[in-house]
């Protein structure tokens, strides 16, 4: 039963990811005084891409064809680990937070390989920038995760959420800092402004888009879907760790329904905050990434420090 719900929850997660992306775009359009497309537009785009015949360069190796599957599957596995509408899931016991970070790293590794596979100028440039971002973002993310893990004495997501719920409302400075750090990391990892511009057509400024520039058809669809899942993953991660209230503690239908409504509401709010921030700032210079992610690391470190100094006996 638990496995069934877990499986169903993951499927729902994957199915809703394009909707979340559509919502973010919809809000962004409104904020920029444009008439938005339907929130279902990402689904239409995916269907269109799946129907198209992919074109693959003659020089492409197996990495090029395998990478979209790896990226998509790691995203799906990561979605399976993160509690969505309910926690105490069997999947959460199998893998913990460190594995989650590992899944992200694996997907990114293949994506950067694929970017370089064809030897085009833009792909290589995108891959090198992506690796620069990753090398700076991962320590910051791990630090934030460890702050949580030390407070909750576990790296298991489900147990950590349980612990947060159990202790009730406690004002924890460490959590605020960790939240800040993780948010900055999420912005960098999901390629949003100010780190990367998902809407740009300028090859020279791209990061994520430059790596997938040569993809078409179903491969592109898988990559797009994968990055949509990743965006939603960070949203769910942030809202369920730091504000877990509402999540279903058991598998009763009404609780599950309430849990689902709660997470949808939280994501909707996040989906307003993200494009609002994106509208207010311009994309930063490439060499500012270091400062930006250095700041994310600093926040996570401050989280750890304030935990040690202010919170522990």
């Amino acid at each position: 039963m638990a496995w069934l719900i877990s499986f169903f929850e993951t499927a729902l997660f994957i199915a809703l990811a394009p909707l979340f992306c559509g919502w973010v775009k919809w809000v962004k359009c409104l904020l920029q005084n444009r008439r938005p497309p339907s929130v279902l537009q990402p689904y239409r785009d995916l269907i269109k891409l799946f129907r198209k015949r992919p074109v693959i360069a003659a020089e492409a190796s197996w990495v090029f064809e395998a990478a979209p599957y790896v990226v998509f599957v790691t995203a799906v596995f990561a979605a399976g680990i993160v509690p969505f509408a309910a926690h105490h899931l069997p999947t959460a016991k199998v893998a913990d937070l460190i594995v989650l970070v590992g899944f992200f790293a694996l997907g990114r590794f293949f994506l950067t390989l694929a970017g370089m596979d064809l030897g085009t100028a833009f792909g290589g440039m995108g891959s090198s920038r992506e690796m620069m971002i990753a090398s700076l973002a991962e320590p910051a993310m791990l630090m934030a995760v460890f702050t949580l893990a030390i407070s909750a004495s576990t790296t298991n997501l489900s147990e950590a959420i349980h612990w947060v719920l159990e202790t009730g409302l406690v004002l924890r400075p460490s959590f605020v800092f960790a939240l800040g750090g993780l948010t900055l990391v999420a912005i960098a990892e999901t390629g949003r402004i100010p780190v990367d511009n998902p809407a740009t057509h300028l090859e020279l400024t791209m990061v994520h888009e430059a790596m997938i520039l040569e993809y078409s058809g179903k491969y592109l669809a898988l990559l797009e879907w994968g990055s949509q899942i990743k965006l939603m993953l960070y949203g769910v991660l942030i809202s369920n760790i730091f504000l877990p209230w509402g999540i279903a503690e058991d598998f009763e239908i009404s609780h599950l329904g309430f849990g689902l409504a709660a997470i949808v509401a939280k994501l909707a709010v996040l989906g307003i905050a993200l494009p609002t921030g994106e509208t207010l700032v311009a994309k930063m210079r490439v060499f500012r990434y270091q400062e930006f992610l250095g700041f994310a690391y600093l926040l996570s470190l401050l989280g750890m420090l304030s935990h040690v100094i202010l919170e522990v006996n």
Binding site: L31, Q32, N33, R34, I193, P194, N197, A199, T200, L202, T205, T279, L280, V281, A282, K283
Partner: peptide
């Protein structure tokens, strides 16, 4: 110019 640095707000206003 603003659009090229990822600040589309200015672009939409000026395009309007």
């Amino acid at each position: 110019i603003c659009n090229d640095v990822g600040f589309p707000f200015a672009n939409y206003q000026l395009t309007r």
